[in-house]
Simulated scan of single mutants.
Amino acid sequence: MSEFKLEAKIRKSIGKNKVDKLRVEKLIPSIVYAKGKESMPIVLDAKEFDKIYLGAGTSNIIDLEIDGVTKPALIKEVQKHPFKNQYIHVDFLGVDMSEKMRVVIPVVLEGRDSIRVQPSVLMQLVNEIEVECLPADLPSEAMVNVEEMQIGDTLLIKDLDVFNNEKVEVLVDPEEVIATLSEPREEEIEEEIEEVDASDVPTVGEEEEEASEE
């Protein structure tokens, strides 16, 4: 069972006018796709989905409670209104817990705000990787700690924690570089110095005030 649970109902409203009415009622017209099965139109509460989406993202199994029946699924695609804070549609991928699946998961560089070597510039070259495993073994992310990196160091796919997980197959070249640490360029240092110096220059108002005091 998943730690993420989301209630849904079979959606009988089809057509633009009807789905627009659902959105006005703070509901999201959605659909569940599953291999070898007919797609299932459902409807979700927008507020409840927002909470689940924030925690689960697209790489965690969700237990969809559809009219009392539990169906494990992944959030496959989320459509949002271009300028309104509103969900337009959500696609779910139904999951067979007994079959391996391929999923893209995010790469997380842990401790990037605590790198001991400063000044330095951390470049992340890979943001996500594809893995294959049983749904129950699906990691939510691929992580590596970067706090102890030194100038000139590089991290590879094989340095990620999931690479050593026997239950997970990483479908990416293990020698691919995911992050590098380098010295800041001279231009960046000069810009920082200029910004500091500019803050010390008095404004026109400050100059006039100083003159009047004299």
Rank of each mutant, 00 (worst) to 15 (best):
E25S: 10
K35T: 02
R102Q: 11
I42A: 01
F49R: 05
H89V: 02
G111T: 03
D96W: 05
I88H: 07
I193W: 06
S30A: 15
H81V: 06
G57I: 05
L181P: 06
E77W: 03
S182V: 12
A211E: 10
P139L: 09
R185K: 07
E186W: 04
V146W: 04
T58W: 00
V32A: 08
S98P: 06
S2L: 09
V24C: 05
V78N: 07
S114W: 00
S98E: 14
I115C: 06
K47P: 01
V95Q: 01
G55E: 08
G57V: 07
Q124E: 08
K47G: 07
K18T: 04
A34R: 00
E130C: 13
E206K: 12
I10L: 12
L134C: 10
N165F: 05
T58A: 09
E141L: 15
M1N: 11
D161V: 02
L125I: 11
I52L: 12
E3G: 08
D153Y: 06
K84C: 05
T70Q: 02
R102N: 11
K35S: 05
Y87V: 04
L134D: 11
N164I: 12
P184D: 14
L122Y: 07
A73N: 01
E132R: 12
D50F: 10
I61Q: 00
L122H: 05
V144P: 03
L171Q: 15
E191H: 10
K51E: 03
V131Y: 03
G152I: 08
K21N: 13
F49G: 00
I151A: 04
L155C: 11
N165E: 14
V19W: 14
L125H: 12
R102C: 02
I28R: 02
L93M: 13
L54C: 06
D20P: 04
M40R: 03
E132K: 07
E214C: 05
L64C: 00
R116K: 13
G68Y: 02
S212M: 11
G55K: 10
P139Q: 12
H81W: 02
K47D: 13
P106H: 14
E48A: 09
T203S: 15
K16E: 09
L109M: 11
E206H: 13
P119Q: 09
D91Q: 04
T203P: 04
P135Y: 10
Y53W: 15
D113H: 11
M143V: 15
V117S: 12
L27N: 11
S13C: 04
S212H: 04
P202N: 11
I14E: 09
P139K: 13
F49D: 07
Y53P: 01
G55T: 00
K12A: 06
L93R: 11
L6S: 01
S98M: 08
A179T: 04
E169W: 00
N145T: 14
